[in-house]
């Protein structure tokens, strides 16, 4: 597949605060690229740079082979951007706002009219097209945000945590919309700190932490390598030298002890399923619970950092 976007060694600082420390990644045409990371990792900054809202200190960006700095205006015409908290002129109606956006994009009047009807229909906002935005719910605001982002028929869509402020129903709805946009051939860069969202729609994933990409994989590889279940064991009292003894087992990658709770990260779940419980039994300490849990983002970080350290 062809690269639509190529980011090379991107740096950005705000005063003394180094937000991006030389990140590089590539987004292939027609894919959904997930940007995963905790708050403050640099996801929003990267997306804002790509959306032309802030500058960058160093590095290079290429969009369809064009240098971003040189052809910024031209490139922006092909990009749609949805901010984390979209803000509109609340006294306008969606119909008026989209007309306003259409005019800014320099589209002809008849095309604007057609496109307004189209995007309002796609985002299921036709019935509230003439209602003031001030009266909209969070979900409706987000849908209007997507409608605005896709108004200029972008090839590339930047979505900054589009589901973070939504209830579960709204989240699923927005994710379905994103899926359908992908089916229309739009390439999407999607930032989130929700692992479920990534699993649901992304093809490729990068994990950002403290301004650096700590892992970049396609979803399948990421699942195999990092999104593996974790053994969550609760002891009545944690036995002495548990950490060292467990780490001696060949399939154990990392052990995280928190009071009487122990998280065991393993490299091979199937082997661990058969053997870990036997190893635990050898400690001769009462075990209150022994479960396999789905990893959270935090768990993946621990695993990724651990693997990188070992490498």
């Amino acid at each position: 597949m062809i690269d639509l976007l190529k980011v090379v060694n991107l740096y950005k600082s705000f005063g003394n605060n180094k937000v991006l420390k030389g990140i590089s990644f590539e987004v292939k045409k027609g894919t959904v690229y997930g940007f995963l990371g905790p708050n403050g990792a640099g996801k929003t900054t990267t997306i804002k740079i790509l959306a032309g809202l802030i500058s960058f200190d160093n590095g290079e960006i290429f969009f369809k082979g064009m240098n971003y700095k040189k052809y910024k205006k031209k490139i922006l015409r092909h990009i749609g951007y949805l901010p984390q908290n979209p803000v509109f002129y609340n006294y306008l109606t969606p119909f008026e706002y989209l007309n306003f956006i259409g005019e800014i994009c320099g589209i002809g009047k008849t095309i604007i009219k057609k496109r307004v009807d189209e995007v309002l229909h796609i985002m299921k906002l036709s019935n509230v097209a003439n209602r003031k935005i001030a009266s909209f719910s969070g979900g409706m605001i987000q849908r209007l945000g997507i409608a605005t982002a896709i108004f200029n028929n972008p090839d590339f869509l930047l979505l900054d945590e589009p589901t973070s402020s939504l209830d579960p129903e709204g989240r699923i709805e927005v994710l379905e919309h994103i899926k359908s946009l992908k089916e229309q051939g739009i390439t999407i860069l999607f930032s989130t700190h929700n692992l479920n969202d990534v699993e649901r729609i992304c093809d490729e994933v990068s994990i950002l932490n403290e301004g650096q990409i700590i892992v970049s994989e396609n979803l399948e590889n990421l699942k195999k390598k990092y999104i593996q279940p974790i053994f969550d064991i609760e002891f009545e009292k944690v036995p002495p030298n548990l950490n060292e003894k467990l780490l001696r087992l060949p399939y154990v990658q990392c052990v995280d002890i928190n009071h009487n709770n122990v998280l065991v990260y393993v490299s091979n779940v199937e082997v661990a399923k058969q053997n870990l419980i036997k190893a635990i039994a050898e400690f001769d300490t009462p075990v209150l619970s022994f479960t396999l849990k789905k990893p959270t983002l935090e768990d993946i970080f621990i695993r990724v950092v651990n693997i990188n350290v070992n490498v």
Binding site: L53, I79, I101, F151
Partner: peptide, 13 residues
Amino acid sequence: YSYKIVFPYSKGA
């Protein structure tokens, strides 16, 4: 400062 300019700016205003 209320970020109303964000969408127009991202569309090349």
